[in-house]
Each structure stands twice: as structure tokens, then as C-alpha cells.
Amino acid sequence: MSESYDFLFKFLVIGNAGTGKSCLLHQFIEKRFKDESNHTIGVEFGSKIISVVNKMVKLQIWDTAGQERFRSVTRSYYRGAAGALLVYDITSRETYNALTTWLSDARMLASQNIVIILCGNKKDLDADREVTFLEASRFAQENELMFLETSALTGENVEEAFVQCARKILNKIESGELDPERMGSGIQYGDAALRQLRSPRRAQPQGTQECGC
């Protein structure tokens, strides 16, 4: 099946373990809650084409392991990400306190220009809330992040989070603030011909020999 899209954006999903990163991704792609899920070791992937301001955008999403010790491994996934969902759990102060570290990782390892949306997940568990909406939105403002509270369980604001982040990136491309041609921008043009023209290495025929093993 050939897919047609105008742009391809690389996205990251980052944040502490157990905040629901994989469930957000699953809800976004499958439109349902993933009830029984393994914790992510290393990285998982997903992709989906969405329509944003008359453009078809393919999101290529890298869902990373949250446990701190995986950082030495997950660093290699950050390169060239255009956008990120930075996730914490509204019922866990600890996951909120870790945001600054995640943020500096993303800006340092992906790109200074990475567009980040802060997601306060598990919105459905309001009774157990440890982080107020106001507090988080202030943090978002101070750090130039967009902000939504989401629920991977009910699906509330999940699609919106991805769409808003993509829309901001598109705006930045249109205003010239982001240059898709720049190496490591995390953005590619969708048109295959154009892509091949611009990236001669990809136009080469791939090796046709059998694996010699």
C-alpha cells in the first residue's frame, strides 16, 4: 500500500516510567486503551497519518522506556526529533518533579528547536490528583511548552496532543522558523521523488546480493 503525505515528523514520547506513555501512543493509533501492556524496554514505535491544516502529516513516533537507567540507551533515539510529548502522571508528584531533567535531555539531545507538548496523563484519576492543572500550566508557560491534560484510558485530549504539536511544527515551517532541509530537523518531505532528489544516497539501488551468510 502506498501512503501519500506532505510531511513526515519524527516524534518522541518521553517521561518517567508508569506515566502511560505507551498507552497514549496505543490510544492515539488504535483508538482504544491498552489494558494489558508490558513495560517498554528500549523503544517501541508507531506511526500514523493525520490531517493538519490541509496537510497530510505522517507522524513517526518513538515511544521510549521511562526507567531512569534506560537513559543511556534511549539517548540514541532522540536524534532528529521534531516534536515530543513530555508525559507525567497527575497522580504522581514524583513524575512531575522529573520534568526538568527530561526537558533538558530533549533539548540537548534532539534539538534546541524541538516542539514539546506537556501531557498531564491519567486525567481520569482526578480523585488521586497530586499535581494541579494551574501549577503544571505555569511550568509549561515558563518553559515554552504547550500543555494538555490527557487520559489514555478515555482517550480525552490524546489525539489533540499529537495534532497540536504537529500544527505548531507546521506553523514554524511556514513562518520559516524551521527549515525541513536542515540536517536533523526531524522533518522530511513526503513526496518520494523530491526526497530522492534531495538525498542522493537514498536514490542508489540497495544491495541486491543475498546475505552471504
Binding site: 524496554i41 528500549g42 523503544v43 540507551v73 540514541s76 533515539y77 544516497r201 540497495q206 544491495g207 546480493q209 543475498e210 546475505c211 552471504g212 551468510c213
Partner: peptide
């Protein structure tokens, strides 16, 4: 498995991206 290795290299796929979970 040189041909597969070359393919991975050409497409920027590193073992940490697919084998972290396998090994650990």
C-alpha cells in the same frame, strides 16, 4: 550477515533500536 548489516547501516538502524529488549 553482511548484506543485512549493510541494509541496517544504510537506513540508520542501530542494534540499540531493536535489540535492547531482545538482549535485556
Amino acid at each position: 550477515c553482511p548484506a543485512a548489516h549493510k541494509h541496517l547501516q544504510n537506513h540508520g538502524v542501530e542494534p540499540l533500536m531493536f535489540a535492547t529488549d531482545w538482549l535485556m
